[in-house]
Design a protein around this nucleic acid. Structure first.
Length: 244
DNA sequence: CCAACCTTTCCTGCTT
DNA sequence: AAAGCAGGAAAGGTTG
């Protein structure tokens, strides 16, 4: 069965098409690591919420403005030959061996792309890369990633990964942790299953389907941003039998 | 250096 | 048969 029969229409989403690309690959041991971002002045942090974990979507735009003022020149460009439409290597072309340094650098993410994934730790008030659960929250909050993952029951926090391998690769890049092997959906899913015991995730039937658990803060300390997106319409051509 | 935390990696067995 | 799911076990990377 196809993974993503769902179709979405976002009536007033003015995001231009060129912005709808998945951030490129980067590595923590390359020149484009987050040291640049972490060295930005503290005034860029806007803490306006008191939830246990404040995902800092709100300061992203401000950070990006500063990036632009610093005359940052993107080093990457895309062409149709770059395999998938989102700029990431397709699962079938992912190497089984660790990428060479040249490969890693060639796919380095831009700091301005990394900015949209940074979160502010509520304890230390420092910006850091997200945990896996936070990464998924951010991913699901971004309308331009609806083709990667989306809620299938937004009130219960049930979501489905439509492009699991692409998300796993993106997760590896956002996490920025040096690992010898590439991240796979299988390994990312194992990490998600570890959340079951702590209640951050709740087991739910369905292929590539997960549910935020009570300890994730879903619908208590935070709600999906798309829940407030009144112009979002959702339809499906096929029944999602596993949705509760 | 150490310990805690959060994965990452590998694996076996089961299910779809 | 292949792929995904569940979860044990151990190891790794980061951070304070």
């Amino acid at each position: 069965m196809l993974c993503y029969p769902e179709q979405f229409t976002i009536a007033d989403d003015e995001t231009p098409l060129e912005e709808l690309k998945t951030p490129e690959i980067f590595s923590c041991n390359n020149p484009f690591n987050n040291s640049w971002l972490l060295n930005q002045p503290e005034k860029q942090i806007k803490s306006t919420e008191t939830s246990d974990l404040f995902v800092t979507n709100d300061f992203t735009d401000e950070v990006l403005q500063v990036v632009d003022k610093d005359d940052f020149t993107p080093s990457m460009s895309f062409s149709p030959a770059d395999s998938s439409s989102d700029g990431l290597p397709s699962p079938s072309t992912l190497p089984s061996e660790p990428p060479s340094l040249e490969t890693t650098l060639a796919h380095a993410i831009e700091p301005k792309k990394l900015a949209e994934w940074m979160v502010e730790d509520y304890v230390s008030h420092k910006r850091r890369r997200p945990y896996l659960q936070e990464f998924l929250r951010l991913l699901l909050d971004k309308p331009h990633y609806l083709d990667h993952a989306s809620y299938i029951n937004i009130n219960k926090g049930i979501f489905k990964l439509h492009k699991p391998q692409e998300i796993a690769t993106l997760w590896q890049n956002v996490k920025g942790r040096y690992t010898v092997r590439n991240m796979t959906y299988d390994k990312m899913a194992r990490a998600l299953r570890l959340y079951y015991k702590s209640g951050i995730m709740t087991p739910v039937n369905g292929r590539y389907t997960f549910q935020f658990g009570p300890q994730s803060g879903f619908n208590t300390s935070w709600i999906p941003k798309l829940n407030a997106h009144k112009s979002l319409t959702y339809s499906t051509n096929h029944p999602i039998s596993n949705a509760k």
